[in-house]
Simulated scan of single mutants.
Amino acid sequence: MQQAASVMQFLNTNTGAITGLATVALLLVTGWYAWTTRALLKEAQQTRLMASEPRVVAYLRVHEIHGNIVQLCIANLSAAAATGVSASVDKVTDWPTKFDFGDIKILRDLSFLRPHEVLRFDLGYGPNLFHDGQPAVFKAAIKYESLDGRPFTFEDTLQVESVAGFGNWRVYGIDDVARRLEEISKTLSAFSGGRRLNVDSFSAADWKEEERAHKERRSQNAPGQRE
Rank of each mutant, 00 (worst) to 15 (best):
G165W: 09
W169C: 08
T23K: 05
E216Q: 02
T153E: 11
M1R: 08
D109M: 00
N168I: 08
V70Y: 06
N68C: 06
A213Q: 05
V7M: 04
R226D: 06
W95F: 04
K186D: 08
A22P: 01
L147G: 03
W169K: 06
E145H: 03
L27I: 09
W169N: 02
V89S: 01
A17N: 14
D175K: 13
A140I: 00
I174K: 15
D103E: 06
D90F: 01
V199E: 00
K98R: 14
N198M: 10
E183Y: 11
Q9N: 07
T23W: 09
F154W: 05
L129N: 04
L60C: 09
F112E: 05
H131K: 11
A51S: 13
S219Y: 14
V29K: 10
V177L: 07
F101E: 00
L113Y: 10
A4Q: 04
S192M: 11
G167F: 05
L107W: 04
A87D: 02
T153L: 10
I142A: 04
V70P: 07
A39G: 03
F152S: 13
D90A: 06
K91S: 08
L197F: 07
V118H: 02
W35A: 05
W207F: 09
F10L: 13
L147Y: 04
N221S: 11
T37H: 07
L123T: 03
L158G: 12
L27V: 09
V177E: 05
A82Y: 14
A4F: 08
A4M: 07
P54V: 04
R179C: 03
N221G: 06
L72V: 14
A44T: 02
A178L: 09
V137R: 11
L119V: 00
E216V: 12
T157F: 13
I184T: 10
V118P: 00
M8N: 14
R196N: 12
Q71L: 15
A34S: 08
W32H: 09
D109N: 01
H63I: 12
K42P: 00
H66V: 05
Q220Y: 08
L77E: 15
W35R: 11
L113A: 02
L110E: 00
N76D: 12
D206P: 10
A4T: 12
A81E: 13
L123N: 00
Q220N: 02
L147D: 04
S111R: 03
N221Y: 03
R61W: 13
R61K: 15
P223R: 10
V92F: 03
L129M: 09
Q9M: 05
K42H: 07
A213D: 01
A58W: 01
A39P: 03
A164F: 14
V62K: 15
R180S: 15
R55N: 14
R195T: 07
E64M: 14
D94A: 11
M1K: 10
R55H: 13
C73F: 11
V29L: 04
H63M: 14
T97P: 01
L188Q: 08
F138A: 12
W32A: 12
E182Y: 12
W32K: 11
S88N: 05
W35T: 03
I142T: 09
P127Y: 12
F152N: 12
A4S: 07
L147Q: 04
S78R: 14
Q134L: 03
W207T: 04
E183L: 14
I18M: 01
H131E: 12
A39R: 10
I104A: 10
L110P: 00
V57A: 15
E216N: 03
E182N: 08
G193A: 15
